[in-house]
């Protein structure tokens, strides 16, 4: 790094790791060698693996759903698009779940919203959350726990899930039998 100060060196190295800096002719031999190295690829792989471990640990339900739907790899690789993620699992995990609540796959969005609500209630950052699903929540949770069957589930009804610290078991599912009739408590 002859002639390069610490600031420049660290910024360029960080850019290489994040993939948002491309070495040019003005860069020294060291940076050129880093850019084309297996070592850089391994560094990126290690970072991604730690991120995945953190997500799997913090977002167990959503990770299970993503894996069954074949989306875990792509969603963890792409998040966060900015490359700026907190070292705190609670912050990073919350950001991940919040982003997936907007996912275009309905089941992913539903499970992420539910898991985020459960965590928030347990942490005391929200008192009560109401969610609406079109899939049977118990069938979804059962499939996630079993590790199979999720992709076969179809929307069957409208369900409301009440998540709250005062709810027995933290959540309650209410099923709409018919839009013209009263709600039925499933469990």
């Amino acid at each position: 790094m002859a002639g390069m100060d610490l600031r420049t060196y660290q910024k360029k190295l960080a850019g290489l790791i994040r993939g948002n800096y491309a070495v040019g002719q003005a860069d020294d031999n060291h940076l050129q060698s880093v850019a084309g190295s297996v070592n850089l690829e391994v560094t990126r792989e290690v970072i991604l693996e730690w991120r995945r471990l953190s997500i799997e640990h913090y977002c167990r339900l959503t990770s299970g759903a993503l894996k069954q739907l074949g989306l875990f790899s792509v969603e963890t690789r792409n998040f966060p698009a900015s490359g700026d993620f907190s070292s705190y699992a609670e912050e990073f995990g919350n950001d991940f779940l919040a982003a997936l609540e907007m996912h275009n796959h309905e089941l992913v969005a539903s499970v992420a919203g539910f898991e985020r609500a459960l965590i928030d209630i347990q942490q005391g950052t929200r008192d009560q959350v109401t969610l609406q699903w079109r899939h049977d929540p118990y069938a979804v949770l059962d499939a996630i726990m079993k590790g199979s069957g999720l992709s076969a589930l179809q929307p069957v009804n409208l369900y409301e899930i009440h998540v709250g610290k005062d709810v027995d078991g933290l959540f309650q599912v209410i099923k709409h039998r018919d839009r013209r009739h009263a709600l039925t408590v499933v469990r």
Binding site: M1, D5, L6, Y9, Q10, K11, L13, A14, I17, T43, V46, I47, W50, R51, G83, D84, F85, S86, S87
Partner: peptide
Amino acid sequence: GYTTVDGVNLGTMLPLPRTDEA
């Protein structure tokens, strides 16, 4: 070593270059 650059988490720890400035 260092784990952040410009306050942004690298997701890994890197050793320092062994220079007078560092």
